[in-house]
C-alpha cells in the first residue's frame, strides 16, 4: 500500500491540468514532509502525517484552490432556471408518457404485471432523458454566453458610457411558451427512444403496429433531430431569446425530424396500413374507411407547415436579437 501522503498528493493532482501535475506533486510532497519533520520528536510520525494532511484540507478543495476557480456545470446565473425547468418537466413528461403506455397496454390486453412494469419503466426512461438533456442544454447555455451576454448587458471589455446602457432586456419568448416547447420536444424524444415499440408487433389485429419497419428503423435519425431541437429550446428557455446559432441548430433538428417523415410519407412507407388498429377504421364490410392518400397528404402538409413556421419564426426572432 502506498503512503498516506502519496495517496493524498495523487488525489489532489489528478484533478489538475496534466502540465502542472508533476511540479505541484513534487512541491506538495516536499511541503508535507517538511511539516511532518517539524513535528515534536515525541509525536508519532503516522499521527503527524495524518494531521499535516488534515490541515491541508480536502483534496478537492485544495485542487480548486490551485486551479483558482471552482468548477460547476451550471452556475448561479442559470441554476434557478435549470431547477424550475427540470421540476416542471419531471412533473409532466414522465406522467404523460406513463399515461400513453397505460392506454397502449390496456388496448393490448396486457397482464396487470406487464402493464405496471411498462408504465413504470417508461416513466423512468422519460425522467432520465428529461433530466439528462435539460442539464446538457443548460450546460451549453452556460458556456456559450459570450455573444448573448454582450447583448443583454454591455461589452465587458470596452470603455463604457452610461448613455449607451441598453434598455433592460425583456424575454423575447415567454416562460410558458419556452417551457411548452421544451416539454413537447422532450415528450417526442422520449417516445422515440423508448426501448420498446409503441403498438409493437402483436399477432392480435385489434392493436397492431402503427408505423412501418422502415419508419421504425429510422427512429434514431428522428431522435437525433429531436435532441438538437430540444437543446435549442432549452437554450432559448435559458436565454429568453433566439440567437442565430440556436436557430441553425433548431433548423438542423427540424430537418432531421421532418425530413425522414416526409420522405417516408411521400413513398407511402410511413403508416403500416396492414397492421393499423383496423377495428376503429374498417367498416362492417372489412373495407378500409381510411383514405390513404388523403392521410398521407395531410401528414406531409402538416409536417411541412409546422417545420416552416418554426424555422421562419426562429430566424425572424434571431434577426431581431442581432
Amino acid at each position: 500500500m502506498t503512503s498516506m501522503t502519496d495517496r493524498y498528493v495523487h488525489a489532489v493532482t489528478v484533478q489538475l491540468p496534466e502540465s502542472q501535475r508533476e511540479d505541484i506533486a513534487r512541491e506538495l510532497r516536499g511541503t508535507i514532509e517538511d511539516t511532518v519533520a517539524a513535528a515534536p520528536e515525541s509525536a508519532d510520525p503516522g499521527a503527524a502525517e495524518r494531521q499535516a494532511l488534515l490541515d491541508l484540507g480536502h483534496p478537492t478543495r485544495l485542487a480548486d484552490s490551485y486551479r483558482g476557480e471552482p468548477r460547476s456545470l451550471i452556475g448561479p446565473r442559470f441554476y434557478p432556471a435549470w431547477l424550475r425547468t427540470t421540476k416542471i418537466l419531471l412533473a409532466l413528461v414522465p406522467a404523460v408518457v406513463g399515461a400513453v403506455l397505460l392506454l397502449v397496454g390496456l388496448f393490448d390486453h396486457s397482464t396487470p404485471g406487464e402493464l405496471v412494469l411498462d408504465v413504470l419503466s417508461g416513466a423512468f426512461y422519460a425522467a432520465l432523458h428529461v433530466v439528462f438533456w435539460t442539464t446538457l442544454g443548460f450546460a451549453i447555455a452556460e458556456r456559450t454566453g459570450l455573444e448573448a451576454d454582450q447583448l443583454e448587458v454591455l461589452p465587458a471589455t470596452e470603455e463604457w458610457d452610461p448613455a449607451t446602457l441598453p434598455e433592460p432586456a425583456r424575454r423575447q419568448v415567454t416562460w410558458s411558451d419556452s417551457i411548452a416547447s421544451v416539454v413537447t420536444n422532450a415528450f417526442l424524444l422520449v417516445l422515440l427512444v423508448l426501448p420498446f415499440r409503441l403498438g409493437g408487433a402483436i399477432d392480435d389485429f385489434e392493436w397492431g403496429q402503427l408505423f412501418t419497419d422502415t419508419a421504425y428503423s429510422l427512429r434514431w435519425v428522428l431522435a437525433t433531430g429531436m435532441v438538437l431541437s430540444l437543446l435549442a429550446s432549452v437554450h432559448v428557455l435559458a436565454r429568453g431569446r433566439w440567437t442565430r446559432p440556436t436557430a441553425v441548430v433548431n433548423l438542423l433538428g427540424t430537418l432531421l425530424f421532418v425530413g425522414p417523415l416526409v420522405w417516408l410519407a411521400a413513398r407511402n412507407d410511413l403508416y403500416a396500413w396492414d397492421t393499423f388498429p383496423v377495428a376503429w377504421v374498417r367498416d362492417a364490410g372489412g373495407e378500409l374507411k381510411i383514405n390513404d392518400t388523403a392521410t398521407l397528404v395531410t401528414t406531409i402538409v402538416v409536417l411541412l407547415a409546422v417545420a416552416l413556421w418554426e424555422t421562419v419564426d426562429s430566424f425572424r426572432k434571431a434577426a431581431r436579437t442581432d
Partner: peptide, 8 residues
C-alpha cells in the same frame, strides 16, 4: 495563514 491558502 493556512498552507492550503499560501501554496496555491
Amino acid at each position: 495563514v493556512e498552507g492550503n491558502t499560501l501554496y496555491p
